[in-house]
Design a protein around this nucleic acid. Structure first.
Lengths: 337, 337
DNA sequence: CTGTTAGCGCCTTCAC
DNA sequence: GTGAAGGCGCTAACAG
């Protein structure tokens, strides 16, 4: 731990300037309330003592607010920074916060047991929590502080704002595209719980999935399959650990091992879809409409994580943010023709 | 501003549990120093009052440290989040901080005049400043707080750690590759100062550039040109505003307007190099060895911004970080053959 | 194992 | 235009 620095306080400056501490405080906070001569005296004293201005922690204590928004990015910070969508989300948050003069504190999660404590110990006025599972203890920790909490993607909680698109409806729409006319459809999915195991299971039940976003997407794919008369119990779902192309390709090979006839894949990201395409699947759909989707001409679901980040920040800081449930768009491209 | 929430304090909990505030404090900070029965009494009282644990600001004030690292990302947060290298840098910082239980506070800069004040008012133990100009007032603000400052890329300052590769030597090496055998070489550069104007100037003098990183790279390109017997005063330098492909392509067209014979371009990023290539330049070099470089088969300078971020965080938090001056590698690919 | 005392550095309130 | 008192919520140091 950083050891305390030797500090120069307002009292020191006051003494050096021959005024009271209050005058120093005013000099920094209400400069116009102090006469020009006094102000100059104070600033001179401050400069010669190396006083850098009011101590931020003391100020926060006094004000009862920190002007900082806490951002909880989930167990593995690495996954977040490697995910272009998460980065856009962060950009949206940072933009709103910068406008309003709020700092963004990335809460140091990632070590497991200590995570809830670290959330609780963060000096912030509100939290934004990046999409997670229903049972994430970190979420509980954020709520226990009684500060405002905004959750991106889910889970939903009474008393917390949830921001995100209607994943189920969007998945049904893109599923209808990719599964149309397919003989043997399959799904490339994100993890089902925080253990992030990889596996293949036909007819995977969405209700068993701990991540609301993943659950809703899978349910939407199933809706689409059922509407097309496809027997969901025979649709293999390959669950990947991360949003990584290499891993997705080997998962795709596992799917082919199980059923060499697979001819359509609904994937939960553009990266996964591109990997399936590279393994030889003709009909694929992605998610997010990223650069990859454009390069691979993928049918996909467009959404702006940046807008959603901005909305989360706005809501967390007490503004009213627009509903994003319908803020998605089906983008039809060659990959489903 | 977030208005103060109604608070439950240790004193409240102490009263409810029939103990002194110190016992409550111990219960949270040295649980083993408190008897199990007392601990339970205290936690029960806390739960029933909705007490969420010690107030972080009060704790910071008392400890004299915040366990938070301040990150200053420059005038335009947008540029930082749109730059994959900056994101990797952030990832490296976040990783080290998470390991050590430090939060990463993105200081809300970007509005101009207020930026220095916001840096000063940030409740952090140390700063990491993303590459900037010699005269950036935000840097001065960080130093004025007397907290440790680590600067990435530059400028160098007495009393501050600087982490980054030797850009000049690296630029000379890659310049030697791309300019070899070129009849009319040119350069695609990053901005020369924080105004970020775009322009073309032949023989642009590196000494006039306010960003040390850009200055060193240009100087290295010039070194390479001179060694090859090229007259630097006739080498056009196109200065781009951001690291954006669209802008780079139009800058490349401006360079062609000035000199249609341009047959080699040294670019300060892979994105800019790819844009030059797409505009028809046969011989190009990039910088960073990103995905783009691999896709476009670009000769480039490989470096790990992630490692550099980690090193900055380590140094800022009081560890000793390895020197990164030689942590780069020339990657030769088809774009200079 | 628990309690008392004494501030950390600041700013609201109220006086002058 | 300036100052004195008091307390924000917490914990180090020292009893007992």
């Amino acid at each position: 731990m950083q050891s305390p620095r030797p500090r120069v306080t307002m009292t020191d400056v006051a003494r050096a300037a021959g005024v009271s501490p209050m005058t120093v405080s005013y000099t920094y906070n209400r400069p116009r309330r102090v006469s020009p001569e006094t102000r100059e005296k104070v600033l001179d004293a401050a400069a010669s003592l190396g006083y850098a201005g009011p101590d931020p922690s003391a100020r926060s204590l006094r004000y009862g607010a920190t002007r900082t928004l806490g951002l909880v990015l989930g167990e593995h910070l690495t996954y977040a920074f490697d995910d272009p969508q998460a980065v856009q989300f962060l950009a949206g948050i940072a933009e709103v916060c910068a406008e309003r003069g709020y700092g963004v504190l990335i809460v140091p999660t990632g070590t497991g047991d200590e995570d809830p404590d670290r959330v609780i110990a963060a000096a912030v006025d509100a939290y934004v929590v990046w999409t997670t599972t229903d049972d994430d203890p970190v979420l509980a920790a954020a709520f226990s502080t009684r500060r405002p909490v905004v959750v991106h993607g889910g889970p939903e909680r009474a008393g917390a704002t949830m921001i995100g698109i209607d994943n189920r409806t969007a998945a049904r729409a893109v599923g209808a595209e990719v599964f149309a006319g397919a003989g043997r459809p399959a799904v490339l999915s994100f993890p089902v719980d925080r253990d992030r195991e990889t596996f293949v299971r036909s007819g995977l039940d969405p209700a068993t999935i701990a991540y609301p976003v993943t659950r809703d997407r899978l349910a939407g794919y199933r809706d689409a399959a059922i509407e097309l008369g496809i027997d969901w119990s025979r649709v293999p779902v390959g669950v990947c650990r991360t949003n990584d192309a290499g891993e997705a390709r080997s998962m795709m090979r596992r799917l082919f091992d199980a059923d060499p006839g697979i001819d359509a894949v609904a994937a939960m990201s553009d990266q996964l879809a591109a990997a399936a395409q590279e393994e030889g699947v003709r009909r694929v759909s992605g998610w997010d409409d990223s650069d990859v989707a454009r390069r691979h001409d993928l049918t996909t679901v467009a959404q702006s994580l940046r807008d959603q980040g901005a909305a989360c920040a706005t809501a967390a800081l007490g503004g009213s943010a627009p509903d994003h449930r319908e803020a998605w768009r089906l983008v039809r491209r060659a990959s489903t023709r």
